[in-house]
């Protein structure tokens, strides 16, 4: 059974920032604490976005786009990580996350070409 991680309860009530120097709720720490272990162990996790005041692009990009930069394939990310949000207006964050993964993959591919 998939583990559900509610960001505001299991990580930080105010997710923001990219790096640990930016504060406790940063994207790198979230990625390393919850997403990377799940991918390495091939364990399904459900990330619940609801309850937060909002998610800055910098946090989401670092958390999810950062997975691609760490070497995880978009296919593996989509296979093992499910992101859910039911709060009004939060649906767009799901699109953001998908875009961050896609853009990070494109940038990664471009680097390999050059």
């Amino acid at each position: 059974m998939a583990q559900t991680i509610k960001i505001v309860e299991d990580f930080h009530p105010y997710p923001a920032g990219r790096y640990p120097a930016d504060g406790e709720g940063n994207g790198t720490s979230f990625r390393e604490k919850f997403l990377v272990p799940a991918l390495k162990e091939k364990r399904e996790v459900i990330i619940d976005l609801d309850g937060a005041p909002g998610y800055p692009v910098s946090f989401l990009e670092e958390a999810f786009g950062g997975l691609v930069r760490e070497g995880f394939s978009p296919e593996a990310i989509r296979q093992w990580i499910e992101v859910v949000a039911k709060q009004p207006g939060f649906e767009r964050y799901l699109r953001h996350i998908e875009e961050h993964i896609t853009v990070a993959e494109q940038q990664s591919s471009a680097k390999h070409v050059h």
Binding site: A16, G17, R18, Y19, A21, D22, G23, N26, P56, V57, S58, F59, E61, E91, R92, R95, H96
Partner: peptide, 19 residues
Amino acid sequence: YRVISALDTAITHGDFGSK
């Protein structure tokens, strides 16, 4: 959603939240 996300990205991408 598209235009709100564009505004959100313009404001909160990059170093937003960085000390």
